[in-house]
Design a protein around this nucleic acid. Structure first.
Lengths: 197, 197
DNA sequence: CAAGATTCCAACCTGGACGTTGGAGATTCA
DNA sequence: TGAATCTCCAACGTCCAGGTTGGAATCTTG
């Protein structure tokens, strides 16, 4: 039988993403990842290095997917509500990313690939600042802080689901509940960032 | 020398809070907690049961402290900006609580003490709903979702510090940076919840 | 004071996780 | 074809964490 190393790598990384998402870096074992992929543990070390580097690889890949999806789907800043709703949608469909980000933050220290990611966010901030200058967005809030808060608006639901459940009495599982939450995010983003006549 | 069991308990719980905050349930070892407290590991099991119950004890205690502090310091809803700023202040001074909450959420499953906490939040939601009816607050957003978003507004900075650093270019460490962030939270809360004439 | 209960600790047991290794099957290329 | 290389895996070594136990020191109670 022929080798298929790309497929082996892909399956391992997929399994790693699943396990890290579910249990975090400390709660995940390399053995479980390998078992989930149906591949021997030694392949993990050979392809990805140790556990820490595997986690970084997974996180970078997921961030890449978000950036691509937003680049393809997000509307312009003149529709800041839908812009934020689009971020919400991504997180709703890929809840693993927020969890990975939270584990990264809780681990402390420098972020994975921090310099490149910071540069990426700085470009976003620059477009927000521009939109504030030309009146597309309300200029009441500092642009960087506005970007940060809008991300939070969309991601907070997925960051503390137990709190969302206790406060709203709903676990957000049904499509209807999700749409209500999304509508709320859209409205809130408009309140925060739309120009006030 | 006389025993001081209350002090022993207190030191163990304090050490457990420190370790759980820093490393999370999976990253924390019972041995390190005991070592940090300068007390034998066996006392942990005798006083608090196993690791899971110790974590729950710590989390419940920290939530209690937040509730007490807010009850004493938070202004009325007619000043929703300062109300939210007060939550921000608590988290800034006690960054361990958000971290504990995030670990709880990431662990999945039912929240610690979920029923009682849900009831507590429901009372808060009821006061928000009342304030919306009498015009103290804008009634554009569902009251439960508004409460949830305001909590997020205040806590998001401490939930993903690495993201805050990359987006804003500041780690929020100095008092001045913290005050700028607080001011932004206050303004944002007003945008979200103050009545629009 | 003496017997029993309580607090405390050093040492231990057991299981499991990280990371490695020796070698077997598959592939490539001279 | 056959030697070198690459992919893969079962089994292992080592370390460490969760949780327990036997017994010493201290307190309490009659």
């Amino acid at each position: 039988m022929a080798w298929d190393t790309q497929e082996t790598r892909r399956r391992l990384q997929q399994a790693a993403c699943t396990e890290f998402t579910a249990h975090g870096p400390d709660g995940t074992t390399m053995e479980r990842i390998a078992a989930l992929a149906g591949i021997n543990k030694e392949r993990l070390y050979n392809y990805f290095g140790d556990k820490r580097r595997l986690f970084e690889t997974v996180l970078i890949a997921e961030l890449e997917k978000l950036a691509i999806s937003l680049g393809a789907n997000a509307p312009g800043l003149e529709n800041i509500g839908e812009y934020t709703g689009c971020i919400f949608d991504y997180h709703a469909e890929h809840p693993q990313l927020v969890r990975l980000l939270l584990w990264e933050g809780l681990a402390g220290g420098a972020a994975v690939n921090e310099v490149a990611r910071a540069a990426h966010y700085q470009r976003t901030v620059a477009t927000f600042a521009e939109a504030q200058r030309d009146g597309t967005l309300c200029n009441d809030l500092d642009p960087a802080k506005l970007v940060f808060l809008l991300i939070g608006l969309a991601a907070w639901w997925f960051a503390v689901p137990q709190l969302a459940r206790m406060v709203t009495g709903s676990n957000g599982g049904t499509l209807q509940q999700r749409n209500l939450r999304r509508a709320c995010v859209v409205r809130a983003a408009q309140h925060l960032a739309s120009p006030h006549p």
